[in-house]
Design a protein around this nucleic acid. Structure first.
Lengths: 241, 241
DNA sequence: GTCTTTGTAGCACGAACGTTCGTATTGCAC
DNA sequence: GTGCAATACGAACGTTCGTGCTACAAAGAC
């Protein structure tokens, strides 16, 4: 019980000075999943150390306080979110209508694929901490603002590219798209209903159509191309679960 | 400290047998507010008893377990929700487009007015418990389903009344409306931004317009009549806070 | 070879958690 | 007036929480 992971074994060849970083990363990888299920407050040090088969104090030493652990977990989740949603969306699409669509599409995939075990980390965290002032809440709010700004920018760029009606309120559209994808995640988590994502996509497509110009790329092409390249990822994720 | 509420005083004329019910109701009134802020798990018996200036054991005896307290709190919140949103909406509007609009409008008001101190009780609870199987989660999911069904029914009735396009997917529209009002609540809780409710209303109005028939009552009239009768309630609520 | 730094474990703390138990007080029935 | 059921309290249970402090093993510097 004292040592399930013998100390001398796993860093025989690697330099000792790097072990800390690696352990920290390993902790945070588990922490983000745990927090997405149990919440950032339900993410306890005892539970986390049990999950990782290490001592409470050993784990604790990496962060110094629970709040620091929470903040580190948030940063780790943000990195994963960017890597899984924002970056691929930007790389896979050109500016304009394709990009704003791609952002929403990648988001629903990210939620559907279960990148975090308990659904979108930030949807959960922002609901949990909205009433608790402090640095944790501030950071979460800041990151959600980044996401909303990314959506808004996507809309604005599509307007500049002549794909969307320039008279449309970009902030308003971003609000609506975020509402729809978050609701997809919400319904999926609560009811396990995959159709929720289809509903979100459908609503977003309709809304885009309602403000698309005649010069915009045809709507139908967007969804179809995306579906194909994503099917393998979904299969991979559901196999791992 | 032991008794801020002297036991012999308030039931001098009332029957003693009713005291239990009254205390229970008083507990639950505080519990729903506390749970809307701290979450249903963060709603601790110790904290609740402190808030009510009564003993932990005395409070505990009313429920028998924490889970029973949570379930009772949920029922209390449901009663308030129906009383504050569903019933007034049904009474103040006739079947059809006015009613579905009224349901959404009453919901945003309910969130904006702060009927629960931490925002919509069920938005918070459903996000918190979506990953924790058990009777608490099941009840929350059931109540949210009631609400979604009420929205869907509102849309369907508006179709039957010839106000909305009968080809529209009522479930889809209900999903979208719920997404928008919940996002309004979310943004308001996280950023304190009252404009979020305006955005939600705006999006719902637009969506209704997009599927409204020529025989539907004029859209503009709906919003205006509502605003007037609600202003007093908002004033009353903000004074109490 | 020692010395220092780094990472982990062991142990203990005070507080809060949900829960149980015994007991005191009260109102009502008899 | 006596007995009963309802209601609430205070104390304590065992557990877990976050957080310290000390010790020790391993790697790199000299």
């Amino acid at each position: 019980m004292t040592t399930t992971m013998p100390a001398g074994e796993q860093h025989a060849t690697r330099g000792r000075a790097l072990q800390g970083e690696r352990t920290r990363a390993a902790i945070l990888r588990v922490a983000v999943d745990l927090a997405s299920i149990e919440g950032l407050e339900g993410l306890t040090i005892g539970r986390l150390s049990t999950e990782l088969a290490m001592s409470k104090s050993g784990l604790f030493a990496h962060f110094g306080s629970k709040e620091e652990l929470q903040l580190a977990t948030i940063e780790a989740a943000r990195a994963i979110f960017i890597e899984e949603v924002v970056q691929p969306a930007l790389e896979a699409s050109e500016r304009g209508l394709p990009r704003i669509w791609e952002l929403c599409e990648r988001w629903t995939e990210y939620a559907q694929r279960g990148v975090f075990k308990g659904g979108c980390f930030f949807a959960a965290a922002s609901s949990e901490f909205d009433g608790r002032p402090g640095p944790v809440r501030d950071r979460i709010a800041g990151i959600m603002l980044e996401w909303l700004a990314a959506l808004e920018r996507g809309v604005r760029e599509a307007q500049d590219s002549g794909h969307l009606d320039p008279k449309a309120d970009a902030k308003q559209v971003a609000f609506e798209f975020n509402a729809l994808v978050m609701a997809g995640n919400w319904a999926f988590q609560l009811y396990g209903d995959l159709k929720a994502f289809t509903r979100a996509r459908e609503a977003i497509r309709d809304r885009l159509r309602s403000i698309a110009t005649t010069g915009a790329p045809p709507m139908a092409a967007l969804g179809i191309s995306r579906r194909k390249s994503s099917s393998e990822k979904i299969a991979r994720a559901s196999a791992g679960e």
